[in-house]
Amino acid sequence: MAATTTAAGNGVGFKAGGYGGDYDPAGAKHTVRFSVAFSNRASGFYANHHPVADDFFNNTSYGNHPDFNMLGVNSAGDAVGLGTLRNNIAYTGTLTANMSGTNSAYNSWDLGVTMSDSQFRSVSTSGWDAARGSDGSLPVLSMLRLATDSTLIDRGTDVGLPYLGSAPDLGAFEAR
Score class of each variant (00 low, 15 high):
residue 9 G to D: 02
residue 149 D to E: 09
residue 58 N to M: 11
residue 68 F to L: 06
residue 64 N to V: 07
residue 64 N to A: 02
residue 20 G to L: 02
residue 135 D to S: 05
residue 26 A to G: 15
residue 173 F to I: 06
residue 119 Q to A: 10
residue 34 F to Q: 15
residue 114 T to D: 13
residue 134 S to R: 12
residue 154 D to T: 06
residue 118 S to M: 09
residue 32 V to N: 02
residue 169 D to P: 01
residue 109 W to S: 06
residue 76 A to S: 14
residue 112 G to I: 11
residue 162 P to T: 09
residue 125 T to V: 12
residue 158 D to E: 09
residue 119 Q to P: 13
residue 44 G to N: 03
residue 170 L to P: 01
residue 121 R to F: 03
residue 12 V to W: 03
residue 143 M to S: 12
residue 103 N to S: 10
residue 148 T to R: 10
residue 5 T to K: 13
residue 46 Y to M: 07
residue 108 S to E: 15
residue 154 D to I: 07
residue 39 S to W: 15
residue 167 A to H: 08
residue 172 A to L: 02
residue 141 L to H: 02
residue 5 T to R: 13
residue 38 F to M: 14
residue 24 D to V: 05
residue 37 A to D: 00
residue 67 D to H: 03
residue 155 R to C: 04
residue 53 A to P: 04
residue 108 S to C: 10
residue 138 L to P: 15
residue 173 F to S: 01
residue 157 T to V: 07
residue 159 V to F: 07
residue 158 D to I: 05
residue 49 H to R: 13
residue 32 V to Q: 01
residue 96 T to S: 05
residue 156 G to D: 02
residue 52 V to R: 04
residue 128 W to C: 01
residue 109 W to P: 06
residue 153 I to C: 02
residue 130 A to W: 05
residue 81 G to C: 11
residue 94 T to F: 06
residue 51 P to V: 02
residue 103 N to I: 07
residue 102 T to G: 02
residue 133 G to N: 08
residue 97 A to N: 14
residue 85 L to M: 10
residue 165 G to D: 10
residue 57 F to N: 14
residue 122 S to Y: 01
residue 42 A to K: 13
residue 96 T to L: 12
residue 113 V to Q: 15
residue 35 S to E: 15
residue 62 Y to F: 13
residue 96 T to Y: 05
residue 96 T to K: 11
residue 61 S to W: 00
residue 34 F to P: 15
residue 94 T to Y: 04
residue 9 G to F: 00
residue 141 L to E: 02
residue 4 T to M: 12
residue 62 Y to L: 06
residue 120 F to Y: 07
residue 34 F to R: 08
residue 66 P to V: 00
residue 51 P to Y: 00
residue 132 R to A: 14
residue 90 A to T: 03
residue 138 L to H: 10
residue 14 F to R: 02
residue 32 V to L: 04
residue 42 A to P: 13
residue 35 S to P: 15
residue 81 G to S: 10
residue 48 N to P: 05
residue 23 Y to A: 00
residue 164 L to W: 08
residue 75 S to Y: 08
residue 61 S to H: 02
residue 123 V to Q: 06
residue 4 T to S: 14
residue 137 S to V: 04
residue 81 G to R: 12
residue 86 R to Y: 10
residue 94 T to C: 05
residue 145 R to C: 00
residue 120 F to G: 03
residue 66 P to L: 01
residue 139 P to S: 01
residue 9 G to P: 00
